[in-house]
Simulated scan of single mutants.
Amino acid sequence: MTKSVAILDYGSGNIRSAQRAVARQGVETVVTDDFQTALDADGLFVPGVGAFAACMEGLQQVRGDRIIGRRLAGCRPVLGICVGMQILFERGIEHGVETAGCAEWPGTVERIEAPVVPHMGWNTVTAPEDSRMFAGLPDGARFYFVHSYATQKWELTETHPMPAPKVAWCDYGARPFVAAVENGPLWAAQFHPEKSGDAGAALLANWISTL
């Protein structure tokens, strides 16, 4: 039976390229803001372009935060991309304004420290060992980034009650930032797999294999 993926539509940019990239993996896709449709799909893809606060506002308008929470409570796959990853953290700070995120992980999304911002273009990612997300990809695989903000400190500790996620990093500017996280049914990437050629297609295929 063909698997289904809901592309969550909450007013965050052009998401058709993401839909096409996911559909090329042989799954049925639907772009939707409907609560039940997003809840029932085998996989939920959460895109994100623009400001953290605006994305959170749009997400809450379609009850996307509740959809994500309900799916994860049932161990049902969710993949967040770019700002769709950022809003999974506890908070975002832009221009001195702090906005609450979905708080699936503790941590703060803040402006990256680098001579050139935004970070735009191809960069290598250091993947964790035994990662399903990066399975089959060579060390130093390159992905396409477009962002000015990121999480630069992973705040989970060994004593935290959550299972230890697998965290990938990218070096850019003064401090490395979190490039991707694999945490049970919740995966997220700061880069755009739909714009990352063969490496991005392989990552999407790895995610689809978990549905």
Rank of each mutant, 00 (worst) to 15 (best):
H147S: 03
F177A: 07
R132F: 01
P176M: 09
A103K: 14
H192W: 10
A168M: 09
S131D: 06
W187E: 06
P118W: 14
S196L: 11
S17N: 15
D130C: 00
F191R: 10
Q60G: 13
T159I: 10
C102M: 13
F45V: 04
G101H: 01
A141W: 07
F45R: 11
K3W: 09
V22C: 10
G50D: 06
E57D: 12
L88M: 14
V83C: 04
G140C: 12
S4V: 00
P115G: 01
V83Q: 02
G136R: 09
T210P: 04
R175N: 12
P138A: 09
G92V: 10
I93G: 00
E110D: 14
I7A: 06
R76I: 03
G58N: 03
I68C: 11
C102S: 08
C75K: 13
A180C: 11
A41Q: 07
T210I: 02
R142N: 00
T151C: 15
S131I: 06
P193D: 11
G121H: 09
A179W: 04
D40N: 14
D171T: 11
G74N: 14
A202T: 14
V116E: 05
I7S: 04
V27I: 12
Q190T: 04
W187P: 01
A6T: 02
V22F: 12
R71N: 03
P128Y: 09
V97H: 15
G48T: 11
A199Y: 06
A174R: 15
G136E: 05
I81A: 04
D34M: 03
A100Q: 14
E194W: 12
C75Y: 11
V22M: 15
P77G: 07
D9I: 00
A127F: 06
N183Y: 13
N183T: 02
D130L: 02
E182F: 08
A202E: 08
E90F: 05
S12R: 05
P193F: 04
F177R: 08
E129G: 13
T210W: 06
L204E: 15
I81S: 07
Q60N: 14
D33C: 06
R132E: 06
A168I: 06
T157G: 14
E94M: 05
G69C: 07
D139T: 13
M133C: 04
T2C: 10
D65M: 11
E113F: 07
G101I: 12
T37V: 13
I87Q: 02
R91P: 00
W187I: 03
I67D: 02
P106A: 12
G80V: 10
P165W: 01
T126A: 15
V46W: 01
